[in-house]
Design a protein around this nucleic acid. Structure first.
Lengths: 119, 119
DNA sequence: AGAATTTGTAAGACATCGCTAACGTATGTT
DNA sequence: AACATACGTTAGCGATGTCTTACAAATTCT
């Protein structure tokens, strides 16, 4: 067979692909502060608003954001649950990486403690 | 300015980009079992060995693998430290995601406990 | 109704990615 | 020396990604 093209990449909605682009990570960083419209979201970036819109489509497909339309404004909200997939994958390397990951465990414990203290 | 092309993506060696491709993740999964030569590494994949070699170059640039040449064989070893960058980034969303991440915290505690038990 | 606002979509330019085939290089074998 | 093995590199291709400009659709305002 001279050329059975496979191109086994990027199943639509893949979370790893979604977070691979720095702009999309920054979008998620911003959304962590609270829901925002596209215009608010696009403000600090140097690319055009349609470009942001396209990034948001990719984030939508990955399930990392949700949209809620109110009038003519579209509010985007973060949905971090699917980041779990990345988290779990990385945690498989914990055995090879005890020190760093123990640090992170402590870090998470600390965050949780703070949360409990506040609540 | 009519068209100052920026293309602000993929600084060489970016870890997020390195793990975005499923083949590269599978390579890391295999290397977690122990060091391997390129041929051993390429065996289960349906793509050619040079393609694997190119993926390995990207993993090398990201610092996620190291190479040790012994004779004509090149042994690749996993270097998971830089995964920490991803881990830390994701952990910033913990506050929005308490349940899942608590589960992961438990998971890590369990892994660590097993490790300690093994001695 | 008509104009302004907010957003998504389409088309096209351009760069980059991922792959194969072919070749080059270094090491080992006979 | 000649050949075999293990690997990297290059050239070239088709596919995909990212961006801009232009436009369409929905909502709000006057």
């Amino acid at each position: 067979m001279p050329s059975t093209r496979k191109t086994t990449n990027n199943a639509a909605g893949d979370v790893f692909t979604a977070v691979a682009h720095p702009v999309r990570r920054q979008i998620l960083d911003r959304l962590a502060l609270g829901e925002m419209t596209v215009s608010m979201l696009a403000e600090p970036f140097e690319i055009t608003r349609p470009a942001i819109s396209q990034h948001l489509s990719i984030l939508l497909e990955s399930g990392l954001v949700a949209i809620e339309k109110r009038g003519r404004e579209h509010y985007y909200q973060i949905r971090p649950d699917n980041l779990n997939e990345i988290y779990r994958w990385i945690s498989h390397f914990e055995r090879l990486w005890p020190e760093k990951l123990d640090d992170l465990g402590d870090y998470l414990d600390k965050l949780k403690a703070e949360e409990d203290a506040e609540g």
